[in-house]
Design a protein around this nucleic acid. Structure first.
Lengths: 189, 189, 189, 189
DNA sequence: GATGAATGAGGTTTCATTCAT
DNA sequence: GATGAATGAAACCTCATTCAT
């Protein structure tokens, strides 16, 4: 039942948008009474948050899974960055509809805790990597912050706006952006 | 009168947020009757769009003005990119309150026509520049698209989240991101 | 319009009772839209309070008017107390339906400010009178408090429960209660 | 089980007030399922009535017990009336919280059968007494009705409002009210 | 008997919009 | 053009009650 409600919430969110996301519509979609929503969620916003959290977790999991599947991570290997970017794109693409709502319609303040947490985790990992690989000018954590913000928007907008850029070309650019702009030495010059 | 209404709308948007942005509140703030809003705007969303459009235009103007003031633009000069980034940050900072609402609360689909137009204009300019400076691998317009999306988010998030990164450091990073990641030759290596 | 709403509220209160007093029913009764209630009252409870306050004021006014009509008040005259009691009964009887709701259904804490104010005013007047007439044993303000509480309930219950006691007999008892129990001297013994 | 439910109902009533008295809350408080309430009570109001009835019975019992403990009742003795009043105050004070709810929040019509029964019993006793003591002018049952209503409110309000009147003073007043206002001869004038 | 998830009618309140003045 | 009182659909949420287990 909880599952049914959450799934209905996701559907309504994607189909109708956040402004039309009403508890009654969710109840209808779930073929459940409005009162039932409130057995499991204290209020409407908790429902949205739950959908968000699951989606964030899924993005994380998919990226992690892709990486795990592609063998041991070797940060020295330029192919690694590309693999990460690839995994990220794939993850974002699995529910582009929801991505659009999350990115473009949800009031950020209220519902993006999960996203911020994720960003921070990635940033910390990246900073360690950048520091370790040494060749960077400037502060690694600054560099990490910039890369994360840059890649985030590039990847999201590519999925949402579908510009006429092939996936291959985009991956090439993202690698260049992260690596080339990262430790120069990694590219062999 | 139209001015009064638009100004009131902007104030309400920034002060109360989009969820509390009601036509009645705007009318109150403008010291005008609710009915009068509908003499000039077909509905609430037209009001929001107008505020957005003006804000976008102002960002454009400010960036353009900054550049004009700093002498003729020489796309070969690495300092130029830094100047653009600097102008952009300054422009975004002039109304950070509204920036937050636009970026984090407004339903994007409906209200971002102006922003897209701006992005496209910049992209075209940048593509020309990249093509002219020659050293880039890959398609200049692809590269331009990536840079614009990357810089956009980095700049906005820096203004909104105020991470502990100095303005100088950020400009340095943005230059590196655009130029270094752009024509390698420009940095002399 | 405000009048219409208040009158409708009174009708619903009396006809349906406090537990069935809903904003929708009031709006229906007033042949007005639910939204209109909220142009004039911040919430449901303000409506109830307004009905209460008007009713309290009317009771006061009627008692005052009766007394004024019956010539100058001479507290030494035993007929005066009887006249007051008579006026009170008459006032309470003019809207026994509302009296029942006020006395038996309204949550006291929320809605009885007006009643308490009235009680206190009467108590103070009575205390002065008792002190002036001298013959009382004990503290005049204590005596005043007791008399007010006693008369209040006796009068109200008589109106609401209609026990088989004639109005004349009741007035006799109330006079005895207040006066006889008050300054003995007033009765000539 | 029935006991548990009734006790929980009493607790919720006193702690949360009648407006927050919901069957779910009672079930929670009783650590029982909502469905179980309906095994023993046809609806919510039956629950309230039961609490009320028990409370009324307890008041009766306590008054009766006090009187029994203070020896044989001699209606000729002026001290008797004082003893009754004293016992009443004590009884009302034992659960002032519930008294407040009963007196100020419960819709009277539905839930005061027990109280009316009690009043009537007292009235009859008092009428007999008044008739026996002879000195009264007017109808003893009328006088009894008035006294009961008067004492009732005075006692209740003293317990609930805690005016600055000592218990002793109040008892003095209540005696005077009942006795002095009753058979004049009893006071020796 | 006991449970408790599920119900759904209906409560209060908001707010974009209209229209007679 | 300007007004602003009036609207009414619809939003969120509650809670007495039921019924399959």
């Amino acid at each position: 039942m909880v599952e049914r409600i959450i799934e209905a919430a996701r559907i309504v969110l994607v189909r109708d948008g956040y402004e039309s996301f009403t508890t009654n519509r969710v109840a209808d979609e779930a073929e459940v009474s409005p009162g039932s929503l409130y057995q499991y969620f204290p209020d409407k916003s908790a429902l949205v948050t739950e959908v968000m959290d699951r989606w964030s977790a899924e993005i994380s999991d998919r990226v992690a899974a892709s990486l795990a599947a592609s063998g041991p991570v070797d940060v020295k290997d330029p192919a690694t960055i590309r693999a990460i970017a690839d995994a990220l794109l794939t993850a974002l693409e699995t529910d582009a509809g929801l991505l659009r709502i999350v990115w473009e319609e949800l009031p950020a303040v209220r519902h993006r805790a999960a996203q911020h947490a994720l960003e921070q985790r990635v940033r910390e990992l990246l900073a360690v990597y950048l520091a370790a690989s040494g060749a960077t000018t400037g502060d690694p954590s600054t560099r990490a912050w910039v890369i994360v913000m840059a890649v985030e928007n590039v990847a999201v907008r590519w999925v949402l706006d579908k510009p006429s850029i092939s996936r291959e070309a985009l991956l090439e650019e993202l690698s260049a952006l992260s690596a080339g702009f990262g430790p120069r030495g990694a590219r062999g010059d």
